[in-house]
Simulated assay, not measured.
Amino acid sequence: MPGLPPTVTSPAELVEDPLSAPDATDAAGTVVERVLGERLRHARTVDPVFARELADRLAALVERGGKRLRTAFTHCGWRAAGGSGDNTAVLRTGAALELLQACALVHDDVMDGSVQRRGAPAMHVQLARRHRAAGMHGSAESFGTSAAILAGDLALAWADDVLTEAALGTPHGRRLHEEWRAMRTEMVAGQYRDLHAQAARSSGVDEALAIATLKSALYTVARPLALGASLAGADDHVLNALRAAGRCAGLAFQLRDDLLGAFGDPALTGKPAGDDLRSRKLTYLLAVALQLAGAADDHRAVATLTPDADPKSENAVRQVRAALERTGAQDLVQARIAELTDMSLEHFEHTGAHPAVRHEFATLVQRATGVVPRRAEEVA
């Protein structure tokens, strides 16, 4: 992948990774399709226009979801806590996570003004085009934004429905719901901190890490692991070890996503490159680069990276990328990703999980972060 250090693998390379994903990932896709079928049939009984123009589009977005990492981590947490046998509740919990992810993506694209998602136009862009094609009155952009917010709300409602059904069907439903409830609030908190940081022109490293943890790390890995473990009746020791492991792996995942957002190839990532740089979104990558530039008295890099800069043009974005490389921030973040992946495996060992489950976790961490953990050989 152009611009990325050789130790970071591209999404296309991850698909071909010799460490095969757990069978649960394939099963999850089937369960997601089944859940979507259930929701769409109900939507059509409610209203055909709503079903055709909104619900169908939402289902298409979820079906383009790809690796189903959150579901895979949920299944891994279940196995780490001793889960075995019927995994229906686990897979349906994973399906709920996929729907929650769709909610986050649709709303995030509206807030960021992103035009592409998973290789297709973003939801608000699709709906604005629908407005124009139908010759409707009023602003197509306003219609697209409003309708996309409803699509995100629908995804959240579907997610809650599926999770509630899973919780009602298990003796561990109360603990499952507690994890889910905490995760939803963390997601909103992270999204708000992200908006707040942009409005306040924040640039602090600690704030960037707090946002990355709340907005992505917890609900991508830490909470899915805990959700799965809850379904197996895990005790506090196992849950705490899984949360620590997931926090590290999830943060590594987000830092890698920051690198891909700045340097990635849109043909592989499915979204435009440089959006975070144009919007001056506070990421750990940008915060570290600004800190390094200040320490080195690199005034040109500071001027380029400051939150007050307005790098809308492609040339300005190229200058930001050059500053990220010149300050050493790109290399530092890559090193931090490798460190976090190893830390996640260390924490996971404290669960006392079977070596096969530890190997499964190492595989998933590699898929999420693009880095082969140095400790992976110890659990192979």
Rank of each mutant, 00 (worst) to 15 (best):
D153W: 03
A199S: 11
S202V: 07
T185A: 14
A89C: 08
L105Q: 05
G144D: 06
R92Q: 12
W78M: 02
V106A: 08
Q101E: 12
T88Q: 13
R175E: 15
A155H: 01
V205D: 06
S139G: 09
R118M: 06
Q126P: 02
D108A: 08
R79F: 05
D108T: 09
L150W: 06
H177N: 13
A155E: 06
R181W: 12
G144K: 02
L100A: 14
E207T: 12
E179H: 15
G135D: 08
R117H: 03
R174K: 08
A147Y: 07
A120W: 09
H107V: 10
A208M: 05
E186N: 12
Q101D: 11
S139L: 03
G138K: 09
Q126V: 07
E207P: 00
R118A: 07
T145C: 13
T93K: 09
A148I: 06
A208I: 04
L99C: 03
L127G: 04
G135H: 06
D109F: 04
H107D: 09
G138E: 07
H196N: 10
L99N: 02
S139H: 07
L156N: 07
S203I: 03
S84Y: 12
L195M: 15
D86G: 04
A120I: 10
R92I: 01
R174P: 04
A167Y: 02
V90F: 00
V90L: 01
A140M: 03
V162M: 02
A120V: 15
G204V: 00
H131A: 03
M111S: 05
L154A: 11
G152K: 08
R79S: 13
G94H: 09
R201C: 11
A200K: 04
A102H: 00
Q101H: 15
Q101W: 08
H177F: 14
V115R: 15
